[in-house]
Amino acid sequence: MNEQLQQTLQALQGGVTGLDASSAISNISAWEQTLGGAGGALTGQLSSLRSMLESGDLDGAAAMLPSIADATEQAAQMAPAADQDGLRQLASMLRP
């Protein structure tokens, strides 16, 4: 499994509310860089999520998580086989 994906899963072991905003922003920024233009709509959603966290809009950020989970689950279908289960697990962790 991709190391960045492993780190993200570890960071979310305590649930999304257990991750402090600055760690979440750092993690999201890293994913934005990794995905770049190849991430399509997911990259845009991550950018919006990061902006909400930076501005302190935690309710707005929480409202975005289900759609990001859906996009992550869709991405799992096209990901390398070694990352598919991890991406599905990540999608599950992002759902309330």
Rank of each mutant, 00 (worst) to 15 (best):
M1A: 09
N2H: 08
E3D: 09
Q6H: 12
Q7P: 15
Q7W: 14
Q7N: 15
Q10R: 06
Q10V: 01
Q10K: 02
A11R: 15
A11Y: 11
L12A: 14
Q13E: 13
G14R: 10
G14P: 10
G15A: 09
T17F: 12
G18H: 09
L19Y: 13
L19Q: 15
L19C: 14
D20G: 12
A21H: 08
A21Y: 05
S22R: 15
S23R: 14
A24W: 10
A24V: 10
A24I: 08
S29W: 05
A30M: 14
A30W: 14
A30L: 15
W31R: 04
E32P: 09
E32L: 10
E32M: 13
Q33K: 10
T34H: 00
T34I: 04
L35N: 09
L35F: 10
G36S: 14
A38W: 09
A41T: 15
L42R: 07
S48I: 03
S48N: 15
S48K: 15
L49F: 05
L49C: 08
R50A: 03
R50Y: 06
S51R: 08
S51E: 04
M52W: 03
M52G: 11
E54M: 00
S55P: 08
S55D: 12
G56I: 10
D57C: 07
L58A: 07
D59R: 05
D59V: 07
G60R: 01
G60W: 00
A61W: 01
A62E: 06
A62F: 10
A63W: 01
A63R: 05
M64F: 08
M64C: 05
L65M: 08
L65C: 03
L65N: 06
L65R: 02
D70N: 13
D70I: 11
A71V: 02
T72C: 01
E73V: 03
E73H: 03
A76K: 07
A76W: 11
Q77K: 11
Q77M: 07
A79H: 10
A79Q: 13
A79C: 13
A79S: 12
A79F: 10
P80G: 04
A82I: 03
A82T: 01
D83F: 11
D83T: 05
Q84T: 11
G86W: 06
G86T: 06
R88T: 01
A91K: 02
A91F: 05
S92E: 04
S92T: 02
S92R: 05
M93G: 07
L94S: 02
L94D: 09
R95N: 02
R95F: 03
P96C: 12
